[in-house]
Simulated scan of single mutants.
Amino acid sequence: MTSTPEPRPARNAPWRTPARPSGPTNPDPSTPPEDVYLAIGRIVGAHGVRGEAKMEIYSQHPERIPQLRRVYFNDDPAPVRLLGARLHGGQALLRLEGVVDRDAAEALRGTLVRISGSQAKPLEEGEFYHYQLIGLAVFLEDGTPLGELSEIIESGEVDVYVVRRPDGGEDLFPALHDVVLEIDPVGNRVVVRPQVWEDEPPRQARVVRAARPRARGPRRADH
């Protein structure tokens, strides 16, 4: 039996970083995904008088939320038993162990709700969680160190990687395969090719140093 190679992404296809940071603090980029906690939403108030909590959904797969049986709050590693969950009006309504009335649910307002990486949907080829990229060393194609990937701006279909230089300045790179050539969280390495502008000689490139794009709101986490 013969096999055909997987198609390579188009040169201008975006790198996919479907998940927001895992919580109030980021783990080390080399941490395996199954060993981290991923944000799926934030509690925004109470629903009704029987203790249901309303959660703003970050997940790209909200249909998976009713299947969950445990969640985690903020940076607390202790699991919280999820007695039930349902989707309602673009939000998730959670029934949590020990939360029996409206006051108890309201007290959770602002709480970040997370799941363990082992509960998450596996990443596809070429996908990375945000925590796997933040803090990586960034190099040009010829090996010249450029700085550290300090932030990911979610500006629409294509994320923008912010690289902080040693002098404190910032360079911006769209997360496209012909600009970001390599991402290696285990090797602590990102390789970029600065964009070439039409008014410059061939093979001469410059790093984009421009005003930051305005983000269109948080991209939902994949789980």
Score class of each variant (00 low, 15 high):
residue 2 T to A: 07
residue 3 S to K: 06
residue 3 S to A: 07
residue 7 P to G: 14
residue 8 R to W: 08
residue 9 P to M: 10
residue 11 R to V: 12
residue 11 R to L: 15
residue 14 P to T: 09
residue 20 R to L: 07
residue 24 P to Q: 11
residue 24 P to K: 04
residue 24 P to C: 05
residue 25 T to F: 11
residue 27 P to R: 13
residue 29 P to N: 00
residue 36 V to P: 00
residue 40 I to M: 03
residue 42 R to A: 09
residue 45 G to L: 08
residue 46 A to T: 04
residue 50 R to W: 08
residue 55 M to W: 14
residue 61 H to R: 14
residue 62 P to Y: 04
residue 75 D to K: 08
residue 78 A to P: 02
residue 79 P to N: 12
residue 80 V to C: 12
residue 81 R to S: 09
residue 81 R to F: 03
residue 86 R to V: 15
residue 86 R to Q: 15
residue 87 L to G: 05
residue 89 G to Y: 06
residue 92 A to F: 01
residue 93 L to F: 09
residue 97 E to I: 12
residue 102 R to G: 04
residue 107 A to Q: 15
residue 114 R to T: 04
residue 116 S to K: 11
residue 121 K to P: 02
residue 123 L to G: 06
residue 125 E to Y: 04
residue 126 G to T: 08
residue 130 H to C: 05
residue 133 L to K: 04
residue 136 L to T: 02
residue 136 L to Q: 01
residue 137 A to Y: 10
residue 138 V to M: 03
residue 139 F to I: 01
residue 146 L to Q: 03
residue 148 E to T: 12
residue 150 S to M: 08
residue 151 E to A: 07
residue 152 I to M: 14
residue 155 S to M: 09
residue 157 E to Q: 14
residue 158 V to A: 06
residue 163 V to E: 00
residue 174 P to Y: 10
residue 177 H to P: 02
residue 179 V to D: 02
residue 180 V to I: 15
residue 181 L to S: 06
residue 181 L to C: 03
residue 182 E to A: 05
residue 184 D to N: 12
residue 188 N to I: 10
residue 189 R to H: 06
residue 189 R to C: 07
residue 189 R to A: 07
residue 190 V to P: 01
residue 192 V to G: 00
residue 192 V to W: 01
residue 194 P to K: 10
residue 195 Q to L: 10
residue 200 E to S: 14
residue 205 A to L: 02
residue 207 V to Y: 15
residue 207 V to E: 11
residue 214 R to H: 04
residue 214 R to S: 06
residue 216 R to W: 11
residue 217 G to Q: 05
residue 218 P to E: 07
residue 219 R to Y: 03
residue 223 H to T: 10
